[in-house]
Amino acid sequence: MASWREALRKTRRTVRRGLGTLFGGGRPSEEAVEELEENLLAADLPARLAMELVETAEASGGDGLREGIERRLIEELGPAAPVSWAEAPRPMTVLLVGANGSGKTTTAAKLARRAAGNGRKPLLCAADTFRAAGTEQLALWAERVGCDVVRGQRGSDAAAVAYDAQQAALARGADTLLVDTAGRMHTREPLMRELGKISRALEKGREHAPEETWIVLDASIGQNAVAQAKFFHQAVPLTGAILTKLDGSAKGGAVFAVRRELGIPLLYAGLGEGEEDLAPFDPESFVRSIFEEDDEGV
């Protein structure tokens, strides 16, 4: 599995470029400050937060600056919130939601694998009945990770498929139901309402379900991440977020805004296309790896 360090190497390069001068101690030059600002912006940090950090940098000297900025960013992300598969309720239903192409289907498969690896019995539900081959994609993944799947017909009612899957989970003694839904734009009201319907169908099948509703966010999206997450949160109260594609993106800074505005924990990071490429989100490593000195001296 790709490591945090490796996956985020690009991010670290982008941000760190200007910091050598700044972190060296002494009063930062105007150019160094400007470079810091550009680099923070380039990492998709929210503009206001970036400006705030820059002002701090200008006001203070170089001494302890790096630690200060790191501390500040770690604080922004809140404490690590690992999913405890062992202690999570049984049965448990996890509803996965998110924008088009963010990585829901792939993440559903990765989560099934993790759940199974932690002694649970997962069942996948392919409730993306909208996109061409949406359910086939999850079915192929299910085969790959060795997990059962309940799938709907293209064009059928997603809520009904979710309901059936929940019944199937109860009947088969599966303790972890992972529901993959169709991607949708947060601005499309009817589609957002459909999510509420899916969630209620799950609850109708079993009280308290879904226990978890996780939003899957693509790390390469910019400031739109917040608007996206907010609308999803209104449609179905979110209990966590997963950040995908951190392996290829130079950024990831949008999580700061999501975390600040919604207060939901960041659970996992997607670090590749393979079934194992999912790591618990670790705020400290995330921030540290942004500022860490590179072995190659970059």
Binding site: A43, A99, S220, I221, G222, Q223, A250, K251, G253, A254
Partner: peptide, 12 residues
């Protein structure tokens, strides 16, 4: 290119 992409769009 996804229009929601952040600062990286240019680099991509």
């Amino acid at each position: 290119l996804d229009a929601a992409i952040g600062q990286e769009s240019v680099e991509v």
